[in-house]
């Protein structure tokens, strides 16, 4: 009876120890392995189709597989005594590599997304800049045309002033021509009168040169001499 109790107590202790070992190491890693597997697939769905990120996800899968193999290989006593320290270290290392590869994939996917968005923004920017350039060219052309209009207006005003001056001058020329014509008429009249007077003077001179006895000399003014 006493031996049976002792045996039962020992069996309980062994079972408890085995359970403790199993609970302390193996389930933790086992759960981590399962969790990593789920998180890898979750992450793979998020990283998109960026080649570098996909390659990193593949690395994560390989590391997870290595971790699982190391876990299976390192189990002692059919798993009752957990893993050997070396195996546990190897499993933890591979799990760490899984995390790192997943983070790497996330970074590369984020960069891929940034690059894509950057390309889209660059395209938009090029479009807006082209539109601005077009507006600026139109503005420059408008300014050029405005200046041309101002120049034309100034030239038009100057032409109008010159036309007015020309009209004024034409009026003056017309007036002067009329005056000249009038003066020419006067000159002609005076010339005719002068000729008549000269002829008259000649006649008088001839009469004076041939005096008649019965005729007294006509009294000539002193100025005629």
């Amino acid at each position: 009876m006493r031996n049976s109790l002792i045996s039962a107590g020992l069996a309980t202790l062994v079972f408890a120890w085995a359970s403790f070992s199993f609970a302390a190491a193996e389930p933790g890693l086992s759960e981590q392995l399962a969790a990593k597997k789920a998180s890898i697939e979750e992450m793979a769905a998020k990283v998109g189709n960026y080649p570098l990120a996909l390659a990193d996800m593949e690395k994560a899968r390989v590391s997870l597989k290595n971790a699982e193999q190391a876990y299976d290989k390192g189990r002692q006593w059919m798993g009752l005594r957990g893993l050997t320290p070396e195996a546990e270290q190897e499993v933890r290392h591979h799990l760490q590599m899984v995390d790192m590869a997943a983070l790497l994939a996330a970074s590369r996917a984020a960069k891929g997304r940034n690059d894509e968005e950057l390309a889209a923004v660059d395209k938009q920017l090029a479009t807006v800049k082209a539109r601005i350039k077009l507006l600026e060219e139109r503005k420059t052309e408008e300014e050029r045309l405005r200046q041309l209009v101002q120049t034309c207006e100034a030239a038009g005003k100057e032409a109008a002033a010159q036309k007015a001056d020309a009209a004024k001058l034409a009026t003056q020329v017309e007036q002067l021509t009329a005056d000249k014509k009038k003066l020419d008429g006067q000159v002609t009249a005076l010339t005719t009168e002068k000729t008549a007077l000269v002829d008259q003077l000649e006649v008088l001179k001839k009469q004076a040169a041939t005096p008649t006895p019965n005729q007294s000399m006509p009294q000539q003014p002193a100025s005629v001499k």
Binding site: M100, S107, R108, N114, D115, V121
Partner: peptide
Amino acid sequence: LDQAEAVAAEKESAENL
């Protein structure tokens, strides 16, 4: 180091963006 390079590239691209 791969991760450092990737994070740097990601941050740089984010800044550029």
